[in-house]
Design a protein around this nucleic acid. Structure first.
Length: 822
DNA sequence: CTCTCCCT
């Protein structure tokens, strides 16, 4: 093992000594090195014999399996060894390590597993996070957990974060870590802004620009589009018009041979245009690209905690992603990048891509933390904390799956966490073992975890996929997706200790198993409907009219997308209602519906929101009724109550004081907040309510006043009085604003003769804005400074008023004149 | 008209 790092011709070699020095003193550092610097191969090798390792291993994290494997091989090569000796790798389905291994390159899920089985990762001296700027969910979790381990158990554990583009100041201040900067090996790329485009016309607009670019520039062109649909359309247009040029699509779904064709130089030496998704941003590198055309959009998956569903969205790309796309033109020589947006748009774009943790399904994360004994994620240090809505949804789901109980991990939860799949699927696998259906469950699990092996036209029946998988195992059909599914199924079979089942499938068994994974998606045909189903979670979803399953009475739905209220079912199996018996619950339902005149009370047999049988309920207790009204108010808003001007005025007075005197602790009485916690203040007044009119009769202002202490009510009247007495003795309303803006006093000018100073509230600290009115209540002047008004503007105003109201008195000296009402 | 990418 002879290796002289200094002789390697890569830019990162220049920073090796600095990194060594920093890690000798600190346990955490950040290395900022752009693509092509060689950091992933050189730095682990340079550090593998440091003293502080005390003979322990270095673990390096890679976001992709292929990268993990090739980097390990390159390092072994530099040492003149075979992979698996000093340097090894571990990825799903494949590992190559031995007792001699000192550097292990692993993919991200593997490290979470390692941390899970040994919190202190005893035999690891250093964890390296490569490509950290991608901010994958696993990398964020792994960093939070290894920091925790470092702080609590292993202060000697070194953490090195490597990243190309990143929000470095934020990261280094959070981790209190030094940043070491390296040069990259990148040629300059000239950026050209091509003006506005339109997301609905991307294929056409992009094709037009590509034609222009082909005429103007030389070399191969890489075009970024959001997805397969746009790529196919653009490809069709270009094929019609560009002769002598090879047009290649490139996206994840494409069979490997066609991906390979897109990456390699053209066989006949033709110029090449590659139409790619974001796959070409990081995962695949196409050599020889001189020109990049960037449409400015990308498609990303986003999880919606309220529906527990993920959906794809087409979004504007961020500046760091745009830079990465442009960089693809400068790998071997100077290049050009055409951006389909304006310079103005560029300055408006978000700087960094949204970390996955902010928009992903967090079920696995919350379960992982629970296994560590962490019930609230905010007790860890996060670069971006997981959003509370997603954490709450994940926690609800895990309680429903009995993986958590009162926020703590259960024995079942620990078993679920050990399986390499989503907790829903893991739950299904374990329950299937009890039902004696484990063989079928492993097939379903693999089908659900991987991409759909059939065409969309095949319909929504999961059983067709399982049949296809079983046929492929018998060698009757073969396709790339099915062989991947089989690989996953095989892993599950090994973990559960079951054999292959290639027999016929009972769809009802599939349905039953799917319910273990997706209990809230049990679906019941709506009466007299067109293939529409009510799901247990309350949503309505439809199957295609011609689908084989459209006329089933019960479905176990696995995949569904929601759009504007009506869902679309993508994957389901028929369900035998007899299997549902244990899930049917008797529930008393009391609802308030103002439009229908009040209470509706029923005793129902139901599964979630699906009602199987319903009988009227003749008596129900007060608590249920009050709860029903509160729920209606929370949902429908203030119009159910008499929310009049007086109430608003009272709210605005309190809210103004809240703004002006923050130290006095005035409550937030904004309408939104009040409606949100109506239970706190309104409930005691609801017990007598029977009809909608009764609700309107509640005197809100009085109710709310009682919410303040007597003392506070006094202070309110003193500091923010409802009315103010003017020189004539009239008591005139002061108009307050919810946001604490200066209150307004609208008063006729003749009533305030003799008033020297601008009136004020809040102990004289807030002067009123005067809206001065004519005798006919028309506005004549607005002033915040009465003294200056009398001295200056009054004389102009007087002239006008004298002409319009000659019978009124308009004195020359208003400060001593008698005020009057007439 | 759902179909970006990746991972245990």
């Amino acid at each position: 093992m002879k290796l002289d790092i200094a002789k390697i011709d890569l830019p990162v070699v220049e920073i090796v000594e600095e990194v060594r020095g920093a890690l000798g003193e600190e346990n955490t550092i950040i290395v900022n090195a752009p693509a092509g610097a060689g950091k992933s191969t050189v730095l682990p090798l340079a550090l593998m014999k440091e003293e502080w390792l005390e003979g322990r291993k270095i673990i390096m994290l890679e976001p992709r399996r292929l990268a993990a494997k090739t980097i390990a091989m390159r390092m072994a090569d530099l040492l003149g060894e075979k992979v698996g000796e000093s340097v090894g790798y571990r990825i799903r389905f494949d590992n190559c390590v031995s007792e001699k291994t000192k550097i292990e390159v692993v993919t991200e899920g593997i490290l979470t597993r390692m941390l899970q089985s040994d919190n202190a990762i005893e035999n690891v001296g250093m964890v390296i996070f490569d490509e950290f700027h991608e901010r994958s969910l696993f990398a964020d979790v792994a960093l939070a957990l290894s920091r925790e381990s470092q702080q609590v158990l292993r202060p000697d554990l070194r953490i090195m974060i490597m990243s190309a583009t990143l929000n470095l100041p934020q990261l280094s201040s959070l981790l209190k870590a030094k940043v070491v900067q390296s040069q990259g090996r990148q040629f300059p790329v000239e950026i050209k802004y091509e003006g506005e485009s339109d997301v609905r016309m991307l294929p056409e607009l992009t094709a037009r620009l590509v034609k222009k670019v082909m005429a103007k520039e030389e070399g191969d062109v890489l075009v970024f589009l959001p997805g397969e649909g746009e790529i196919r359309k653009c490809e069709a247009i270009l094929r019609k018009t560009l002769n002598e040029i090879a047009v290649h699509p490139l996206y994840g779904q494409l069979p490997p041979s066609r991906q390979f064709a897109a990456i390699m130089p053209d066989k006949n030496g033709k110029r090449k245009v590659v139409l790619a998704t974001s796959i070409a941003e990081t995962s695949l590198t196409i050599e020889g690209i001189k020109v990049v055309v960037d449409c400015g959009f990308s498609r990303t998956m986003r999880f919606d905690p309220s529906s527990a569903l993920s959906r794809l969205e087409t979004i504007e790309i961020t500046r760091d992603a745009a830079d990465q796309r442009a960089g693809r033109a400068g790998r071997l020589a100077p290049g050009v990048c055409y951006r389909m947006w304006t310079k103005a748009t560029q300055s408006r774009l978000k700087e960094h891509r949204t970390p996955e943790i902010q928009e992903a399904d967090l079920a696995s994360l919350v379960l992982d933390l629970a296994v560590w004994g962490i019930s609230k994620p905010d007790s860890l240090i996060w670069l971006t904390p997981p959003p509370s809505g997603s954490v709450a949804q994940a926690s609800d789901l895990l309680h429903q799956l009995e993986a958590l109980e009162d926020g703590k991990i259960t024995d079942l939860g620990k078993e679920i966490d050990k399986l390499p799949c989503h907790p829903r699927i893991a739950h299904m696998l374990l329950m299937a073992q009890e039902e004696g259906l484990a063989e079928l469950a492993t097939d379903i699990a693999a089908v659900m975890e991987e991409r759909d092996p059939l065409e969309r036209e095949s319909g929504i029946d999961v059983n067709l996929r399982i049949e296809a998988l079983r046929k492929s195992r018998k060698g009757l059909v073969s396709n790339k997706v099915l062989s991947r599914i089989e690989k996953v199924a095989n892993q599950y079979r090994k973990m559960l200790g079951v054999k292959v089942d290639n027999g016929p499938v009972d769809p009802f068994e599939t349905g039953l198993l799917l319910v273990y994974a997706y209990p809230e998606r049990i679906a019941h045909a709506k009466p007299g409907n067109n293939a529409q189903f009510r799901m247990a979670n309350g949503a309505v979803a439809a199957a295609g009219h011609k689908d084989d399953l459209a006329h089933e009475e019960w479905l176990a739905v696995a995949q569904v997308s929601m759009r504007e209220g009506l869902g679309k079912i993508f994957m389901a199996s028929p369900l035998n209602p007899r299997d549902l018996a244990p899930m049917v619950k008797e529930k008393e339902m009391v609802e308030w519906d103002t439009k229908k005149g009040g209470f509706k009370a029923e005793r129902n047999l139901c599964i979630g929101h699906i009602i199987l049988q319903s009988k009227p309920l003749h008596q129900c207790d007060e608590g249920q009724k009050v709860a029903a009204i509160l729920k209606a108010i929370e949902k429908e808003g203030g119009w159910l109550l008499d929310w009049n001007k007086e109430v608003t005025q009272w709210q605005n007075r309190v809210l103004s004081l809240r703004k002006w005197n923050p130290e006095e602790g005035w409550p937030d009485v904004s309408k939104a907040t009040l409606l949100g916690d109506a239970k706190e203040w309104l409930a005691p007044y609801l017990s007598q309510v029977k009809r909608p009119e009764d609700l309107k009769k509640i005197k809100l202002k009085e109710v709310l006043q009682h919410h303040l202490s007597y003392e506070k009510q006094q202070v309110l009247d003193e500091l923010a009085p409802d009315r103010i007495q003017v020189p004539t003795g009239s008591k005139i309303v002061i108009q307050y604003h919810a946001n604490g803006d200066v209150p307004v006093l609208s008063v006729r000018l003749q009533e305030i003769f003799g008033w020297q100073e601008t009136p004020a509230v809040n102990k004289g600290k807030v002067s009123l804005l005067m809206h001065l009115l004519s005798p006919g209540f028309k506005p004549v002047q607005i002033t915040g400074d009465l003294r200056s008004f009398w001295d200056n503007a009054y004389f102009e105003v007087k002239k006008e008023l004298k002409a319009r109201y000659p019978r009124h008195k308009w004195p020359d000296d208003p400060l001593v004149a008698e005020p009057n009402r007439k």
